[in-house]
Design a protein around this nucleic acid. Structure first.
Lengths: 340, 340
DNA sequence: CTGAAAGCGCTTACAG
DNA sequence: CTGAAAGCGCTTACAG
């Protein structure tokens, strides 16, 4: 059943059927009703690919995520989705599983016009390439970004957030502070590490090079890296983890080693995912405005698609340090260790 | 830049360019090279939507998931993805967030031919509707299914698995066994509840109606429902939870109530997600072959798309009870309670 | 092995 | 307000 068949049944031209579907206000009430009746009667569904081909619009937004199972990204996703749906766009998801090749494949979908635009929640491809693409296709970066690139971006200031997290530990009296990073090929990992280093240096604290351990964002890697830190001859009294998942993994390692958090080891996370307030102990962490990041990113993308101008190409959202239970002061740590 | 432009530059017809791209073996080596040179030189990318429109194929598989953040579904997804990619299909994801309306929207993508086929990891629409669709479009159900429907399906036998889980508790001497269900509009919730009831009844055990509490698959709901169960005048000594997430939530509630798992309360989960072996205590649970379910489902879908015949429309995969630490025998529970 | 031509199912500028 | 007609960019059956 195609449009011309519907047209025949309704005694109108295909053009009229098309108008009833896409611009009903251009058709008289009478004709419109006649056509709609036929459409319902035969349960006609327009062939969307034909429409897309004709109009050069897909009404689809592709969102590329490094890991769909992450509680952090799924919140960002919600923000994107809500705005998209409000503007008549459908969201489809590309999960890269942190694989740069799959990132490429999804970007190809955009190049081949299978989506009207794209939000990248991961940006690990080379700079020149990405900038080139963004010059020709609507694209915005959220969370991850690429330095010195003229692509619209929404994120927090990861360096200053990480500095703030680390300084919280320093204020509590800790001096032996370790950092579990994300995979270091990701810019956010390098940013948060830099923030950590800035805080340490500006307080004249040494960073034992063994105090920096590279994780891969997962609970397990937080666990494993923490075990390494605890095995050190001179173990840290506090740890700042790249994200809450690894922070919780680290705490698990602390517990499994017969130690206690925060009494024996203070831990700060990052992201403020839902679980962090259920966890034992409740996590001290940096809150990112996840939903709002997604929302803003999608709003920018829609402007790009509509070729409206964007006054601000880079949006930096506000973070917040959430103090809960996973950090106590260094003196307490000392006491606790002395008891042992 | 379109195909005809490339053709001109290479001094061939558009048909030849098309063949170089889609059926290179039909073109002489010489001509092929000439065309490829031009393609590379001008960086020509075929317009995929035009191709899709012409061939009626999208090479896209739509997978509809009730909750992308679930560790269980993401494993199934991996199985689907790997098979899909091996057969030249791209996978896009539709996340319904357990919303039946969004399930409909994604199914519409299929009806409108924006995907060659679809794997539904959630099937909550009405029966007749779904059967009708599956008669005209390649579709397979995985995990969730609909009873009495002739749609290809891959799943475990949820009833018998749930019975097995409950019987494990019974064998340990428990008689006061509660069940935290999933949302009851989902068939899997009803199946696992039935398995629970079968086990209880076949051992002549009463089911206090307050022992059945409806959760919504989330950690939080497991937590909240467990709190209700513990508040009962005659609380259970064991709980079978619909999934591992709720089982962990339940255990958290036990701990927060000053009790211990398994000493004061035995808990069995379902799914055997990764976290269940990291959890404290390690979860006793039912293992589903998640990756294999996805794999099998996708293999069936590809056969459907290619109009090959399928000998078995329903595939029932094997489950396994994994015994770990979260259940001890009822006698121990009794002792522990007597101490209090 | 290659080309000319038809056609996939819509939408829209144009004319009336 | 409505219709006739062109055309979006490919692919493929057919002919040579």
């Amino acid at each position: 059943m195609k449009m011309s068949d519907v047209a025949k049944l309704a005694n109108v031209s295909p053009a009229t059927v098309s108008r009833v579907l896409s611009h009903p206000e251009l058709v008289s009430t009478e004709t419109r009703q006649k056509v709609l009746d036929v459409i319902n009667q035969v349960n006609y569904k327009p062939h969307i690919v034909a429409r897309q081909f004709r109009t050069k619009e897909t009404k689809i937004i592709l969102v590329v995520v490094p890991d769909i199972t992450s509680a952090f990204f799924s919140k960002v996703l919600r923000g994107i989705e809500h705005v998209a749906v409000n503007h008549g766009y459908q969201v489809i998801l590309g999960d890269t599983e942190n694989d740069i090749e799959r990132e490429k494949e999804y970007i190809n979908l955009l190049l081949q016009k299978q989506a009207d635009g794209m939000v990248l929640l991961t940006a690990r491809l080379n700079k020149a390439n990405l900038e080139e693409i963004s010059n020709h296709f609507p694209m915005v970066l959220a969370c991850e970004y690429i330095d010195g690139l003229n692509i619209p971006t929404v994120s927090i200031d990861n360096i200053s957030s990480a500095r703030k997290a680390t300084e919280h530990l320093i204020k509590l009296g800790h001096t032996k502070i370790a950092h579990i990073t994300g995979t270091i090929n990701v810019i956010l990992s390098r940013d948060r590490m830099r923030g950590y280093q800035q805080a340490m240096m500006s307080h004249d604290l040494d960073i034992d090079s063994a105090y920096i351990q590279e994780g891969d964002f997962s609970f397990e890697s937080g666990y494993n890296q923490m075990l390494k830190l605890l095995a050190l001859e001179n173990p840290p009294t506090a740890v700042f983890a790249f994200n809450d998942d690894m922070a919780m993994g680290a705490i698990k390692a602390v517990k499994d080693s017969g130690l206690k958090c925060p009494e024996d080891l203070a831990v700060v996370g990052f992201d403020n995912i839902k679980m962090s307030s259920f966890h034992e102990p409740k996590l001290t962490t940096i809150d990112q405005p996840k939903y709002e990041i997604g929302k803003k990113a999608m709003e920018m993308l829609i402007k790009l698609i509509n070729k409206e101008s964007i006054h601000k190409k880079k949006i930096v959202m506000k973070d917040e340090l959430i103090i809960r239970e996973s950090c106590s002061s260094e003196s307490k740590v000392r006491e606790s260790l002395e008891v042992i």
